[in-house]
Measured scan of single mutants.
Amino acid sequence: LRTVEMKKGPTDSLGISIAGGVGSPLGDVPIFIAMMHPTGVAAQTQKLRVGDRIVTICGTSTEGMTHTQAVNLLKNASGSIEMQV
């Protein structure tokens, strides 16, 4: 596991798309980074990659989380965001 910290302002975009989660079209698979926009906050860290499994978001485990719950957690996060992948 590695921990990645990002700074995100209220109008900034992380610039990632995620897939997976409980009840997702892919089945109940762990949440992972499906796409990254090169100008997004996540890409700027140069520490995240497409395919990385997201284990925690700001200390909250993604295990058993639906896709929608994970998306909302990421969208609503601002300031210092910590992810374990």
Rank of each mutant, 00 (worst) to 15 (best):
I54E: 03
P38C: 07
N72S: 13
A43P: 03
D12H: 10
S61N: 11
I81C: 08
F32E: 11
T3H: 09
S61G: 06
G15Y: 01
Q46E: 12
S13M: 14
C58Y: 03
G64D: 08
C58T: 05
G40Q: 00
H67D: 10
T39A: 13
T56S: 15
A34M: 07
D12E: 15
G9F: 04
V22W: 11
I31D: 06
G79R: 06
K8A: 12
N72V: 05
M35E: 15
V71Q: 15
G9S: 11
T3V: 10
K7V: 14
K7M: 13
F32I: 06
M36Q: 01
I31R: 05
T56L: 03
G15K: 01
A70F: 05
S80T: 15
S61D: 09
G40D: 01
G15F: 00
Q84F: 00
G27R: 03
E5G: 06
R49P: 02
N76R: 12
T11D: 15
I18E: 02
L73E: 06
R49M: 13
S13V: 13
Q44P: 03
A19N: 12
T56P: 06
L1G: 05
H37K: 13
D28R: 05
G20P: 00
I81R: 04
Q46A: 11
E82D: 09
I81L: 08
T45C: 10
K47T: 07
Q44W: 05
R49F: 14
T45I: 00
P25T: 10
S13G: 10
T11K: 15
C58D: 14
P10I: 11
P10M: 10
T45R: 01
T62Y: 02
N72Y: 08
V22P: 07
M35K: 15
I54D: 01
K47V: 08
M6V: 09
M36D: 02
K75F: 08
S13K: 14
K47F: 05
H67E: 13
M65Q: 03
P38W: 03
T62S: 00
R49A: 13
G59L: 03
F32Y: 15
Q69K: 09
I16K: 05
N76D: 12
S24M: 00
Q44N: 11
G9D: 11
A19F: 07
M6D: 06
P10N: 11
Q44V: 05
I57D: 00
V29A: 08
V50Y: 04
T3D: 06
T11M: 14
I18V: 11
I18A: 01
L14H: 00
H67G: 11
T62P: 03
V71Y: 12
M65N: 05
S24N: 05
A70H: 05
K47A: 11
T39D: 15
G40N: 00
M6S: 04
V55M: 14
L73N: 00
P25C: 10
V55P: 04
V50A: 08
T45E: 08
V22M: 13
G27Q: 03
D28I: 03
E82A: 10
G21L: 01
S24L: 01
P10A: 12
M36G: 03
L73P: 03
A43I: 03
T68F: 10
D52H: 04
I54H: 05
S80E: 12
G64W: 04
M65C: 03
L14D: 00
A70M: 06
M36P: 01
I16P: 00
E5S: 15
S61E: 08
Q44S: 11
G59Y: 00
F32K: 10
T39V: 08
R49D: 09
G51E: 04
D12P: 03
